[in-house]
Amino acid sequence: MSRTDPLRRNPRRLLLGAVAVVVVAAALALSAYATTPRTHGVAGDWQAKPLDGRVVGRVLLSGDHTALDLRTGKSVSLGSAAGGRAYAGDGRLVVAGTGRVDSVGLDGTGRWTWRPPPGLAAVPLAARRGSTLVAACPADASAPCDLVGLDAGGHEAWRTTGSGRVAVPEGQGLPHVYAAASGGGVVLVDPVDGRQGLVPGDQSTGVPDGPVVLSAVQDGRCVVAAYDGADPLWTRVLGACAAGPGPRVTSVTVAPGTLVVDGPDGGTGLDPATGREQTGSGRSAAVTGDVVARTAGLAVTRERHSTPLDPLRWGSPTTVLTVVDTGSGREVGQVASTGRLDLLLLDGDGLVVRTDDGVTRYTLPRR
């Protein structure tokens, strides 16, 4: 009796089994493709190489003194200025090191170096219209500092001696005016000409490459005022205020075009340049999900999605940043990545994100 191979005896069954495997695999692949979030609704504007660091206004500062302009995608470096601390403001990178201050424009032009007198340490405080204000302070913590205005070429334009002790700024963003508490108000110093003024204010917030915003309680009402240099830029009188310090004002890191004022009406979003209220930018604007940033009429939410039907993505969930129109609740667009995905900047025209591949700006469609 001869024996026959079962597979040869049933070729049709073998063929049907193979077809079934292919069909199931194709169905899983299509399902995985359909359920995996992808970038859509946005258009790529520019991409720069990967760069770690922190966002200061509209600039990304790295630890090696490299600055990436998040508006243009251009970068500049002052790596030769060893050590020190980097600052950004007025479209410039400023590095304060031991016995020197180095600066260069974000477009790579106008580089200069200024050295304070021996025994004094320089601390950048503000920058505006090409001028940079630094404090030259002695090592003795009880001794007063000099305030020095440097022009666009890094040359000393004016100096005020014995101006009191100056603390190193907490942030690395330089506002357009220096503000220091003095008695019951705030002293403002203009970097351009050294003009000073004493104005009312309980709290001050410096917007990187923007005005200083002061808050106070006047006649029982919350008042917020912005100064660009020593001159007032705008004033907003809010609702009734309880006795005590004025409302807290926050400059949003990834949305520098928005100030959030925690006043009597809740979180109100204001344009730092004009003081006008930005509809849908306050914390009270209704948007579902984990909101990571808001600006005029827009919010960005962050979510993580898993794709169980895709074996290539098991253990690697997709992170999605979704841009939402706060007026209509409609999705404007989204950016998705299976790796790193950090929101660096949000404005009315687009957003800048950092992934494993680099830093990319996406523009949004007109709404």
Rank of each mutant, 00 (worst) to 15 (best):
R128P: 00
A88I: 15
S131A: 12
A121T: 14
V104T: 15
L93A: 12
A121F: 02
L70S: 03
G105M: 06
S75P: 08
R129V: 14
D107F: 05
A81H: 04
W114N: 01
L93N: 10
G99H: 03
T113S: 10
D64P: 06
A127P: 03
G84V: 07
D69K: 11
V101R: 04
R128K: 14
R115I: 01
L106K: 08
G91P: 07
P118H: 10
G83A: 02
R111I: 02
A96T: 02
V95C: 04
V94K: 01
S75W: 04
L93R: 12
T109M: 14
G108F: 08
W112R: 13
W112A: 11
D102V: 14
A86Q: 13
L78P: 08
V95L: 03
A121C: 04
G73Y: 01
G83Y: 02
G63Q: 12
A121V: 10
A121G: 14
S103P: 07
A122I: 09
A127N: 04
A86I: 13
D69L: 12
R128M: 06
R92Y: 01
P124K: 06
A122R: 06
H65S: 11
R85L: 14
D69W: 13
A127Y: 04
L93E: 11
R92T: 07
T72V: 02
A67H: 07
R111W: 00
G89A: 03
L133C: 12
G119N: 00
R128W: 06
R71T: 12
A96D: 03
L93W: 11
D69I: 12
G83E: 00
L120N: 03
D90S: 06
G91T: 07
T98M: 00
A81M: 06
L133G: 10
V95K: 02
L70K: 01
S131E: 13
P124Q: 04
T132E: 11
G99N: 09
G63Y: 10
R128Q: 11
G110D: 13
L120Q: 03
G83I: 03
L106A: 09
L120S: 01
G130V: 09
L70H: 00
V101N: 05
A121L: 09
V95A: 05
A81F: 04
G110F: 06
A81S: 13
P117F: 00
G99C: 05
G84T: 07
H65W: 06
L93F: 12
G91W: 05
L133W: 13
G119R: 00
A81E: 07
G110N: 15
T66D: 05
L133A: 11
S103C: 09
S131L: 12
G79C: 09
R85M: 11
T109N: 14
D90E: 05
V101K: 02
L70C: 00
G79I: 08
S75A: 14
L93G: 10
T109S: 15
S103E: 14
R92Q: 11
G108Q: 09
G79N: 10
A86F: 15
T66S: 10
T66I: 05
